[in-house]
Structure formats: structure tokens, C-alpha cells
Write a protein that binds this DNA or RNA. Structure first.
Lengths: 209, 209
DNA sequence: GATTGTGAATAAGTTCACAGCC
DNA sequence: GGCTGTGAACTTATTCACAATC
């Protein structure tokens, strides 16, 4: 029931919680031990009522006098959006974008770890980039099965994205961060988040007109 | 009135239109000259009624017998979301992520062009990366004024992101693609789109649990 | 007969507003 | 007095459903 209950949370709320957690880490490092909803809201670029609404979904509670405990709230968010053990993730496509992602995650990320990168380029095999070892694509299925990997990041050229996706899904991946400009076809029940730089920049350009 | 009318369009719709346009380009290259809403929907990963609703906002029209003209629709979308002339964009921060963005946009992008990159690293000044020249940050204000730049991409470390943002906004930038993990503070009326890789991956990890 | 264009219905997401609390 | 937690109101976004059209 706990598990099924979690799956209810919607993607936007999860994203905001992730952001709150990052802000809480900063606050904790600064030695603050409590925070009000409107403070978190300012840091995260949202509204105080939105923050309180988001926090409702994880059974925490603050107090009217001092707000929320920075430590407790951070732990509650971690419990809600990350699991107890670190979740292993693979990344496919170690070009500029893939390297940027690896660099970003090389440390400091609670709840998840990019355990391996894969690339079709023989030049890249055997290298370690930002702490993550890179393998040839032929090792992908074995590695997925071995570690029971359920989450993947796609930072490869669009041409081979669907093919790799089919491979991933066939090997048990159920959640994909798709940084390709292709919209993937996946079976029902597989979550895909599209982070399409082209679309993002065109949108920004539109609002800059 | 035309101008003010355009500004009404919401960000999600603009993003989908951008996607439709890309699909239409592919269809045009394949020699197709008409397309139905449900076909575009499948390609873009949405529903036929969503497509028709989106197309309503730009005064096109399809016919029940053959759907939409691939060419006309492409042009109508371009007219709606891009302008007539190419829009100049600058990018600040030429690390892995910045290079990935430059590479992505080096060609084939209608409506916008990344005219210059900026970086604080002296090593990078004077280089041309994926067709885009890179300058030191001191050249930024001059270049913004000179070209009347209104749109920028931030792919630099979070530490200096707010400082650079203030500079950009002060020099007339009104729309920013923020690929930093910091939430920027900007005056009313400035559009910021956050593309936060950390949040994206944590969300995906959540759905992969 | 299948599709478009669109009003109406529904769903999803956000903000309001206020009782209860410290 | 200012804050939390939350039902209710509201706003925004999506889907339905069907008359008009080819």
C-alpha cells in the first residue's frame, strides 16, 4: 500500500520536492534548522501555498511557530522520492551532453547513482568519465540484468534512440530520461521524460520576440 | 494587435507547436504533402484533439478529406512561433553542456541562431565551437546592445548564474533558458525556462523505483 | 465514412481563505 | 500575530462529442 500510494504522486510535484530537498541541503549547510513555507517558496521560485500543498503529500508536519525542521523535512522528502537504497542508473551516449550529465552527477546526489555509461564509439570504451566507467553497447543488456537496472538516461543521437530504447525496455527499464529530439515509442507503463533542448530554446525564443 | 495576440500563447502549446514543426519538416523531406491530426499526434506523442486544439490558435485550416497541408502548416507554425527574421541568441558558459547546445543548434534551426558564446575561461576565448565564436565575458554587454539581443541560454556554473543574469537583464534580455541548477531571480516580465537536469533525473528515478 | 473545428464537459493543477495552533 | 494544514474556489489544460465538411 505504501508502494502503490507513492506511485500516485504527479511528475510536477516530484520535481518540486526534488528542488525543495536541494534547497534544504543548502540551508542545512548554512546551519539553519528550521524554515517557513514562504522561505522555501522564494528559494524554489514558487508560492508558499504550493509548498504547503506539496508537503501535505508526505506526512510531515511543521509548526506554526517555527515552520519545518530542515533535517526532518529533508529526510521525509528523501523517503518519499528516493528509496532507502541508492538507485542505479545507466546512461547511453557519452557525447558532450552525456558528459555534461555525468559531470553533474559525479558526486553529491542522494538517492541515485549513474553506475555505467555506454557508447558505440570504440574510442570511448574503457575510459572513466567523471568517475563513471564507459563500456561498449554490447555490454548493455548484461549489465542491466545483472544490476536490475530500471532507470536510464538517453544522450545519444536520435538515429539510434528508438533501437536502444527497445533494448532497454526489453531488459527491464521502466523509466527513461530522453534527451534526444525523438519522441520514443514505449509500451504502456514505461515512464519517459522528454528534455528536448530544441523545443526548450524555441520556446524561450518565442517569449523573447 | 497581432503582437499582443501572440503573447497570449502558453508555454506548453508553444513547445508542442515547435515539435509539430519538426515533424512536418521530416514529413516534407519524405515527400508527403498532407497529414492528419492523428498522424501528427502519434509522431509528437500526444492526442489528435490536442493537435487540433493547438492548431486552432494559428488561423490555419485543414480539410476533412486530406487533413493539413504539410508545407502550409509548417509555414503557419513558423509564422506563429518564430518571427520573420532570424532571432539572435547568446549562450553563456561553454562547458560540456554549452558545447552540447551549440552542437545541437549548429545548423538546421529555423527562426533562431546562437550568434555568440561567452566564457570566463581565457582558454576558450577566440575559439569557434560548432560554428559559434566564443568571447570573454567582458564583451557580453557590448554584444547584447549591438545586436539588440533579447534571448540567452545559461549553461554556466550555478555560482555565477545570478550575477550573469542580472547583467543580461540589465542589457535588455527578456527571455532566458536556464540550464543551471539555481532558480534565478528576475524582474517581472522576464521569462525564464528552467531545464534542470538534476530535477529531471530525480523525477525519472522516482518513476523507476 | 473519416476528418476537421469547436463548444461543452472533464480533469488537473494552483491559489484562496480561514480555522486551529503556537 | 504569523504560521500551518486543508476544504473550497478558481484557473488552466485536456479530452469529449458532434455538427459541418469533403
Amino acid at each position: 500500500m505504501n508502494e502503490s500510494e507513492k506511485k500516485k504522486m504527479n511528475a510536477r510535484a516530484v520535481g518540486r520536492l526534488s528542488l525543495y530537498r536541494r534547497m534544504l541541503q543548502v540551508l542545512e549547510m548554512r546551519g539553519m534548522d528550521s524554515v517557513f513555507s514562504h522561505e522555501l517558496a522564494t528559494l524554489a521560485g514558487t508560492s508558499a501555498s504550493q509548498v504547503r500543498r506539496d508537503l501535505m503529500s508526505l506526512g510531515t508536519s511543521g509548526s506554526p511557530s517555527s515552520g519545518y525542521s530542515v533535517r526532518d523535512l529533508g529526510e521525509a522528502i528523501s523517503a518519499a522520492i528516493s528509496g532507502v537504497q541508492r538507485q542505479p542508473v545507466v546512461l547511453v551516449g557519452v557525447g558532450n551532453l552525456g558528459r555534461a550529465v555525468l559531470h553533474y552527477f559525479q558526486n553529491n546526489h542522494p538517492g541515485l547513482e549513474i553506475v555505467a555509461g555506454f557508447d558505440s564509439d570504440p574510442e570511448k570504451r574503457g575510459r572513466v568519465i567523471s568517475g563513471t566507467p564507459v563500456y561498449g553497447l554490447s555490454y548493455l543488456p548484461g549489465r542491466l540484468a545483472e544490476d536490475g537496472i530500471r532507470t536510464a538516461v538517453l544522450t545519444l543521437p536520435a538515429e539510434s534512440a528508438q533501437e536502444v530504447t527497445d533494448l532497454l525496455v526489453g531488459a527491464g527499464v521502466v523509466s527513461i530520461l530522453n534527451m534526444t529530439n525523438l519522441r520514443l515509442k514505449v509500451p504502456e507503463g514505461v515512464y519517459v521524460e522528454d528534455t528536448d533542448i530544441g523545443v526548450a530554446l524555441e520556446r524561450v525564443a518565442y517569449f523573447g520576440k
